[in-house]
């Protein structure tokens, strides 16, 4: 493995462990308000409070606990949505590439239209109407993300289905399902792994953006985006509130991109969508 892939993997595993186990070890309630302790600065500044190393927010809630618990929501939504989006994309791409003809043209035409539209605008309109919850967020993000994966899958299927070993398999009497699962699916796995990695980063970002606008996860449950949003009004006096979720988000996306770049080079996948 290349060093960059190792660093990225190690970093991401650490972040995942921290948000999964961290809150249990810390034993501090991320929702507990303590008004006398409100707006405490982080540990290196004057006025910092013991027990609140990263400071507190305007309701006196501990920021370390909030960032860790908030990370659960952000990462869960990111992982679930990207996994679902890639799964849908693989199925659609396999069918489109394998069946060909007008079905293929119809699906890809729809995909072109779908991908061209500013997703956030539609998501905001939808959430404004149906309200926001974690399942709604995951559904919307899945709908937004399937096209790229479907396109890559379809392109590979078109190339592979003409290969001799596939033709031989069909000649030997293999059914459609068998060809799809035994020959085509493995052929598209590498590209989709790379794709999935990048999509995780995008999804975490979009969830953060929606929560930042107040259209994501409902308060008081924290996510990195909602903590950032909490810090907006008090930016000048309590800049440390948005600092921590901002750092967490940036670091996660940076590591995910690094991992994606490394995997792409290692698996020698060519993808025009990601430079």
């Amino acid at each position: 493995m290349r060093p960059s892939v190792r660093i990225a993997l190690a970093g991401l595993v650490l972040i995942a462990l921290a948000v999964a186990v961290g809150p249990l070890l810390l034993g501090v309630d991320a929702l507990e308000q303590d008004l006398p302790a409100k707006l405490a600065p982080p540990f290196w500044m004057e006025g910092a409070l013991a027990g609140h190393p990263l400071g507190t927010d305007q309701l006196g809630r501990d920021l370390l606990a909030r960032v860790l618990v908030g990370g659960r929501t952000s990462l869960l939504v990111g992982f679930a949505a990207s996994t679902l989006a890639c799964a849908v994309g693989i199925v659609v791409g396999l069918l489109s590439g394998y069946l060909g003809g007008w079905i293929d043209r119809l699906i890809m035409g729809l995909g072109d239209l779908w991908i061209a539209f500013p997703f956030l605008v539609l998501a905001i309109a939808t959430i404004g109407v149906v309200g926001s919850s974690t399942p709604v967020l995951i559904t919307l993000l899945t709908l937004a993300g399937w096209v790229t994966s479907a396109r890559v899958t379809r392109t590979i299927v078109k190339q592979v289905r003409g290969e001799d070993y596939v033709a031989a398999s069909v000649g030997a009497g293999a059914g459609h399902l068998s060809v799809l699962t035994r020959h085509l699916l493995p052929a598209v796995a590498g590209a989709n792994l790379v794709m999935w990695t990048f999509v995780v980063g995008t999804m975490v970002l979009v969830e953060g953006g929606l929560s930042f606008l107040g259209l994501g996860v409902r308060p008081p449950a924290p996510s990195w985006g909602t903590i950032l949003s909490d810090g907006r009004e008090l930016l000048e006096t309590a800049w440390w509130i948005p600092l921590w979720p901002g750092l967490a988000l940036t670091l996660t996306v940076l590591l995910v991109n690094l991992l994606g770049d490394g995997l792409r080079d290692a698996l020698d996948v060519r993808m025009d969508d990601h430079a």
Binding site: G208, G225, L228, T250
Partner: peptide, 9 residues
């Protein structure tokens, strides 16, 4: 990698 809302703040 920096989200626009983080960079903006």
């Amino acid at each position: 990698a920096v989200p626009n809302f983080v960079l903006g703040m």
